[in-house]
Design a protein around this nucleic acid. Structure first.
Lengths: 334, 334
DNA sequence: GGTGAATGTGCTATCGCTGTCATATGGTCG
DNA sequence: CGACCATATGACAGCGATAGCACATTCACC
């Protein structure tokens, strides 16, 4: 037999409504009464039924995290960050994989919301820019926060970093190291960040007066294999690049693997740079020069903004860092 | 205003009980009636409230996955596998990080169950062997399934692979490649699999008549850094090993990094083997010889067994494979 | 044609909590 | 000292579904 609020109310000698007040930290409860109730709760080891609270009240004490990302490290950190904030708030987290290319996407999300009555939703890229999802959420008036969205959206909070500037920083760093022919591996086309990083790369080249060469830019998909493929074609060029900047760490690992296979010394003969500073960056050899994206913090902040949504919409930019490790070096020779 | 079962019943011209019957696929509903109801459900885009179903019924249509694992790749695959099966079943998944060393572990888990009324729980290692959790679950009579548990447990289903045999296979492979001094990096002490893999290593040595040398065995913790540390001390030995077998891929990556840093050629001067065949195994250079552990499948199967728990307890062993890649080779010289 | 079993449908209580409103008490102030 | 407000507590309805039972209807079989 489940312990219910009624058992607590009897043990504490008050009405269930008063127990409910204590549970919800409402005011107008005498300190002495509060204490009695709290003792009863502890003694009975009582945890209120979320189902009942959800059904009766306006809150469900649950939020959902929607993702569709193919980097396990990235989503792990995102989950972890959101989870950490939820824990503090006493809110359950429903982590939901989705498929942004699915025809039933809006329906799936709508169903999730109807079923679970979640109080809010956190979107991570690329779900951040899936129009059907945004429409569905708005139609229902569910508060939501976006992590690293590709487009602006005045109506809802977001947390992000400056992808353009970060890619610019990295490219500039490579230029400063004497590199002129810098290969670039673009991210997955679904992600707006891919465009932004490419833009930052071009901006840095322009500013430094290094001519942009389309040949040096290859499409990738944020995964190891596409990074490797891109590296193969880049290194097959008659005049191969002396540095390759991949739009994330997974692809940079692919580049590294190809270099190793071909016996090209990194960083002596080829500098390789990544993006994100996931754990992977330090699991490969040599450890990657990359952009530290504060992923966990972005996620944590996103949850904070969601819980504070009543206080208005906020767009918060978090700082990135250029992390120089040993996969890049000054250009040699020539 | 939320769409409720009542709206559906009106639209279909039947009682709410009949709608409920259709929703729950009960029998004794005329085919014609069923169709009418299904059409109404589709037309109204109705998804029943889980909160209400949970409160009124005996099922919550939710299960929990408890984990406390420090390999993002591993838990990602576990989540993915369980999630896949849940989706088929129309059941929501609550993925919950836990801390097996926490003093409040049992309470946390109990609270989770009381709050959410989950219908069942899946435990992944090392939560599989956390006594407080097992007791709590049994006390409440919640069905649960364990993925790769370290100890036997007749009362509940489990899925696992033969860690002893797998480690034996790998060690034997290395011996067959001419290696005699084989370093071994033990996994995290919390995980029973760590002992089993060590045991398999020893068993293979014994069978081949290779003397066991305690010096060649180092404690690790399933993470990159501990693998690197172990490698440092192993390679500092007066007579260093010609092969190192790490109990998982993350630690093997750590070994690789140290070898690279020291200019030791892999696999020419040192063979390195991992365990698990997570994505990481192919993200490092050279790609790791490892044991393919069917992680996603283990998780998927675990969920299947949970849903089939009414049909009795089952212990299912899944097949592992030795995957030979280029991080190991025949011993050279000497 | 009568009888019992199988099939099909609806009424109503109920799950455990929160929202709303009613009610009681004590303090402040003109 | 009465009016009013802030504080404190409880009674009761109702959230949206399922369970249990009552009540038709159909069918098979003697």
């Amino acid at each position: 037999m489940r312990t219910t609020i009624k058992d607590v109310s009897i043990a504490a000698g008050v009405s269930i409504k008063t127990v409910s007040r204590v549970l919800n930290k409402e005011k107008y409860v005498k300190e002495e009464t509060r204490k009695k109730v709290e003792e009863a709760v502890a003694a009975l080891n009582f945890s209120p039924s979320l189902a009942a609270r959800t059904l009766a009240g306006r809150r469900s004490f649950q939020i959902a995290l929607l993702y569709d990302n193919h980097s396990p490290y990235y989503i792990h950190q995102i989950q972890d960050g959101v989870w950490g904030r939820c824990r503090e708030q006493g809110v359950r987290l429903l982590a939901q994989p989705t498929d942004v290319d699915s025809a039933t996407l809006a329906q799936d999300v709508g169903g999730l919301i109807d079923e679970t009555h979640v109080d809010g939703v956190i979107l991570s890229s690329p779900v951040t820019d899936a129009a059907p999802v945004l429409e569905e959420l708005e139609r229902r008036g569910i508060p939501f926060v976006r992590i690293s969205p590709g487009t602006n959206h005045a109506l809802t909070s977001s947390v992000f970093m400056d992808d353009v500037q970060a890619a610019d920083d990295m490219t500039t760093h490579l230029i400063n190291e004497g590199h002129r022919r810098i290969g670039f591996v673009v991210g997955h086309p679904n992600h707006m960040a891919s465009d932004q990083r490419l833009f930052g790369y071009r901006r840095a080249l322009d500013r430094a007066g290094v001519p942009f060469e389309p040949n040096l830019v290859r499409q990738g998909a944020f995964d190891f294999a596409s990074g490797a493929d891109a590296a193969e074609t880049l290194l097959d060029l008659p005049e191969p690049p002396s540095a390759i900047f991949a739009s994330n760490d997974d692809m940079a690992a692919g580049v590294l693997a190809v270099a190793h296979r071909r016996g090209i010394a990194v960083p002596d003969d080829l500098s390789v740079a990544g993006f994100d500073d996931t754990d992977l960056a330090q699991l490969v050899w040599p450890p990657l020069t990359t952009i530290r994206q504060p992923t966990r913090e972005l996620a944590y902040t996103a949850a904070s903004l969601l819980f504070a949504m009543g206080d208005g919409v906020e767009h918060r930019r978090l700082q990135h860092d250029l992390v120089v490790r040993s996969s890049t070096a000054r250009r040699k020779g020539r």
